[in-house]
């Protein structure tokens, strides 16, 4: 399959580039948009971005490897980011992540992001999500969920399975 950015998306990206006096500045915003559309940043997406901004591919690739939010592989449709950092840990986020892992047949001892073989879920430990008063918190795709209980975790899993 050849890599193709739809015209309407490309128009949006061209508009984003105009926000900056130097095109290179638009890199992160372009990568966000491409990841949102394709689900991850492929080699082709890196090269396409580099061409668009007049950069070498390495200038873009080094961003993909530096910034934790960028992915080089497809993510699950339901992306569960459990906060690992102190306030959430004190409120049981470690147990919460283990609960998600065991429900989904993932290895709780593995630290890195894991995706289920059916591609439906990705479970990940992330650093502070800046909502510590509502610990433990989960960023579910784009929605931040406060004070997540194991029962809510089960609901998230059930919903994600039916997707």
């Amino acid at each position: 399959m050849t890599f193709a950015v739809p015209a309407n998306l490309e128009a949006q990206l061209d508009e984003l580039v105009t926000h900056y006096p130097q095109k290179r500045s638009a890199s992160l915003m372009l990568l966000h948009a491409l990841q949102e559309h394709f689900g991850y940043i492929s080699r082709d997406a890196v090269e396409w971005t580099a061409r668009k901004l007049g950069l070498q591919p390495i200038n873009v690739y080094e961003l993909v490897t530096f910034y934790p939010m960028f992915r080089q592989e497809p993510l699950g449709k339901t992306h569960i980011k459990v906060c690992r950092t102190l306030s959430c840990a004190l409120a049981g986020s470690g147990e919460l992540r283990t609960h998600f892992c065991s429900k989904l047949g993932l290895d709780a001892h593995k630290h890195a992001a894991q995706t289920t073989p059916d591609g439906k879920f990705t479970v990940e430990f992330v650093e502070c999500l800046a909502d510590c008063g509502n610990a433990p918190v989960v960023l579910l795709n784009e929605d931040l969920l406060p004070k997540v209980t194991p029962a809510q975790a089960d609901e998230i899993v059930a919903k994600g399975k039916s997707k």
Binding site: S87, C128, A130, C132, G133
Partner: peptide, 11 residues
């Protein structure tokens, strides 16, 4: 870029 663990005011 509110990220200092414990901080959730700017949000």
């Amino acid at each position: 870029d509110e990220s200092e663990p414990g901080t959730f005011k700017d949000r």
